[in-house]
C-alpha cells in the first residue's frame, strides 16, 4: 500500500520557555495509506487534536516531519495553503464556524479561496452537499436557521467541496443523537467508497471506529500505543482496558465469556461475529 501521509518522529511542545511547557505529541510516527479509512482513537489529552492539526500544516512541528506524497509539507512554507486544500480538516463542532448568509455561500468559501468560479464551483458545492446529506432546498437557507445536525453537515460539506485528497474529521458525530450520528457516518462512508478518497476519522467511541475504520491507530500520552486492523487491535482488548480505553461492547462481552471459560476467538468484535461464534459452539454441543 502506498503512503499518502507519513508522520516522522513528530514532537509538538506547547508554551516553550514558559512554566506551562508541555509536549502534546512525543516522537510519534504514523502512516496514512492512500484510499483507506483510518480511525484515530484516544482519550482527551492523548494528542489527537494536536496530531491532526499538523497534517494540514495548521501547526508546525517542534521537531520531526510531515510528508505528503513523499514531500515535506514545510519544505516551502509559502505554499502551506495548498497543503490545506489537499488535506481537508473538519474541526470538532464545525458548525460554530459558519458565517455566510446562505448554506450555499458558506460551502463555497473553501473552493472560492482556491480560486474556483462558475460551473465548476457550483458542481462542487452541489456534490459536496449531496455527500454530506443536505437536501437542495436547504442550500438557500441561512445556516443559522438550520438545525444542529444540518449545520454540521453544511460545515462538513464546506470542506468536502475543496475535494481534498485526504479528509480528516475530528469527532464528526459528537453531540448528535444516535440517529444523526449513524446517518452522518453512513454519509461519510459513502463518500469514502464512492470517491475512493483517504479519510481519517477521529473518535473516542470504539463502537464507531470498530464499525467504520479499515485500520485503527490508538493514541495515548502523545504516542501511538497500537496500530492495525480493528480485528488486530480489539483482540488485544485487555491491553486497551489497561491503558484506560474503552473496547466495543461486543468485545467486552466476549472477553468476559472467555474469562469464565468459554473458548471464543479473541478477534471477534461485531455482534454478528459473536452471535455466529456462540451458535457454532452450541451446535458443536460443547457445554
Amino acid at each position: 500500500m502506498e503512503e499518502i501521509i507519513k508522520v516522522e518522529n513528530l514532537t509538538h511542545t506547547y508554551g516553550i520557555g514558559t512554566p506551562f511547557e508541555r509536549s502534546a505529541v512525543k516522537d510519534m510516527s504514523l502512516s496514512v495509506y492512500r484510499g483507506e479509512l483510518l480511525g484515530l482513537i484516544g482519550h482527551t489529552g492523548s494528542g489527537k487534536s494536536t496530531l491532526i492539526q499538523h497534517l494540514n500544516g495548521l501547526l508546525k512541528p517542534t521537531s520531526g516531519r510531515i510528508l505528503l506524497d513523499g514531500k515535506d509539507i514545510w519544505a516551502e512554507p509559502k505554499k502551506i495553503r495548498d497543503v490545506r486544500f489537499r488535506v481537508g480538516l473538519v474541526f470538532q463542532y464545525p458548525e460554530y464556524q459558519l458565517f455566510e448568509e446562505t448554506a450555499y455561500k458558506d460551502i463555497a468559501f473553501g473552493p472560492m479561496n482556491m480560486g474556483l468560479k462558475g460551473d465548476e464551483l457550483d458542481r462542487r458545492i452541489r456534490d459536496a452537499a449531496r455527500f454530506a446529506g443536505l437536501r437542495d432546498e436547504l442550500l438557500d437557507k441561512s445556516p443559522f436557521a438550520l438545525s444542529g445536525g444540518q449545520k454540521r453537515r453544511v460545515a462538513i460539506a464546506g470542506v468536502i467541496a475543496m475535494e481534498p485528497e485526504v479528509l480528516v474529521l475530528d469527532e464528526p458525530s459528537a453531540g448528535l443523537d444516535p440517529r444523526g450520528r449513524e446517518e452522518l457516518l453512513e454519509h461519510i462512508r459513502a463518500y469514502h467508497r464512492e470517491r475512493g478518497n483517504t479519510v481519517v476519522l477521529v473518535s473516542h467511541s470504539m463502537e464507531e471506529i470498530a464499525r467504520y475504520a479499515d485500520r485503527i491507530a490508538v493514541l495515548a500520552h502523545g504516542k501511538v500505543l497500537m496500530r492495525g486492523t480493528p480485528r488486530e487491535v480489539f483482540s488485544r482488548g485487555g491491553e486497551l482496558v489497561k491503558a484506560g480505553l474503552d473496547v466495543p461492547q461486543t468485545t467486552r462481552v466476549a472477553m468476559e465469556l472467555r474469562r469464565r471459560g468459554l473458548e471464543i476467538d479473541p478477534a471477534v468484535y461485531t455482534v454478528e461475529e459473536l452471535r455466529d461464534a456462540l451458535l457454532a459452539r452450541k451446535k458443536g454441543g460443547a457445554r
Binding site: L58, R84, L89, Y96, G110, V159
Partner: peptide, 10 residues
C-alpha cells in the same frame, strides 16, 4: 479555534 477552522478552508 475559529481562525484555525477558517484557515483550514484556505
Amino acid at each position: 479555534k475559529i481562525m484555525s477552522a477558517q484557515k483550514a478552508r484556505g
